[in-house]
Write a protein that binds this DNA or RNA. Sequence first.
DNA 1: CTGCATCCGATGCGATACTG
DNA 2: CAGTATCGCATCGGATGCAG
Lengths: 136, 136
Amino acid sequence: MVTPRKPPLTPDASGFNVYARECPARMVLDRIGDKWALLVLDRLRHDAARFNAIRRDIGGISQKVLSQVLKNLERDGLVLRTVHATVPVAVTYSLTPLGETLTQAAASLIHWAESHMAQIQHAQRLYDDRLAATSL
Amino acid sequence: MVTPRKPPLTPDASGFNVYARECPARMVLDRIGDKWALLVLDRLRHDAARFNAIRRDIGGISQKVLSQVLKNLERDGLVLRTVHATVPVAVTYSLTPLGETLTQAAASLIHWAESHMAQIQHAQRLYDDRLAATSL
DNA sequence: CTGCATCCGATGCGATACTG
DNA sequence: CAGTATCGCATCGGATGCAG
């Protein structure tokens, strides 16, 4: 056991607890609970891809950030970096078996955002209108 | 249809696409693909809670950030804020039906981080050792 | 093509103090 | 108890330039 969980949630058999600020699991959550990392993980879900392909597919990600995200994911053992000895050098990124156990959860989050946008936008309008009304 | 999806993933019936930088779904992903938001969502998963209770349960979150996260989640229609007319005032936060459709995905991510920590730490050691070896 | 290094502005976030 | 306001540091992240 590393740290006790404060909320009355089901205790985790592993002993790790994301609710504790010092727990290593929190560090991992920091990385995977990130917009860019989730998108990269989802992008690699069905097929491996080269650096610039990922960069093109994920609108708005900079080369610097993609580079950092990939390196972190590789260090955590979620992404495999493969260098092909061609000229010029080609590098492909793919999911490791460990990474594949995560992408479904990542995809769920992403898909949720897309499929519930209508309801979210409706809620936002209600909230904004109500706010404007009270501030008159 | 709002924006076409670039990667060959299954197109979403809603027409929203998180891979597009201008898509509203990306904004939502920004908010829910966030360490603190995920933890708050997970904390409210089983029961409603008051502001300071949430603050205590989530180690390391500041009242400023918690305040912002809760406000955003409320605006997006994921969290319901209820003011009880007592003295002093008590405010409880709970999940809306819409929010409940998301927490399972959030919980999956969080639980994944906890249950795979051993493998992650192993991968990190391998990576760091390999890095130290090559830089000699 | 695949990165790493640097500069630098924007944002995040903790600490602190104050209101109802 | 439940916030809001402000400050200041730290990190994020885009743009540019350079190297293997």
